[in-house]
């Protein structure tokens, strides 16, 4: 039912895969891909790795990317510009924003609504 896929971009392959594992567990309906690390698995982000993640999203007509630190955003932006499907970047915390995003995507919401939900996650506190 979901048409919006989620991409988790991290400098660390393990971190990206961990976020995917955690959030898929919370919302199994969502289609997601982990794009962590450089081509060789080292720490970093790479537009080609991210692009392959976008292409791997089965049955998705749109995608939303969430990133961790610094240059992850720039490389995600480059990947979104060369993608064959429309891709939005969500300026959101990776885990909390990712959770909001998979929930919306699981309900079949479009990329704009998924991005908006992810970005609202900045307001979620842990202790209050």
């Amino acid at each position: 039912m979901s048409r919006t896929g989620l991409i988790f971009v991290s400098h660390s392959r393990k971190l990206a895969e961990g976020v995917k594992e955690l959030l898929e567990n919370m919302q199994p309906e969502a289609v997601t891909a982990a794009c962590g690390g450089e081509e060789d698995g080292g720490i970093g982000t790479n537009p080609e790795v991210i692009q392959r993640g976008i292409e791997s999203l089965e049955g998705c007509t749109e995608a939303v990317i969430l990133t961790d630190l610094g240059s992850a955003w720039m490389n995600a932006e480059i990947a979104s510009e060369i993608s064959s499907i429309p891709v939005l970047l969500a300026d959101a915390p990776l885990v909390e924003g990712g959770l909001a995003a998979v929930v919306e995507a699981g309900f079949g919401k479009d990329a704009a609504a998924v991005k908006e939900a992810a970005e609202k996650a900045w307001d979620m506190r842990k202790s209050t």
Binding site: G44, P47, E48, G70, S71, M74, N75, E77, I78
Partner: peptide, 15 residues
């Protein structure tokens, strides 16, 4: 530069 440099300088020099 875009595919091989990495860090922030890859996307910046590449762009």
């Amino acid at each position: 530069c875009i595919s091989k440099v990495g860090g922030a300088s890859g996307p910046l020099y590449g762009s």
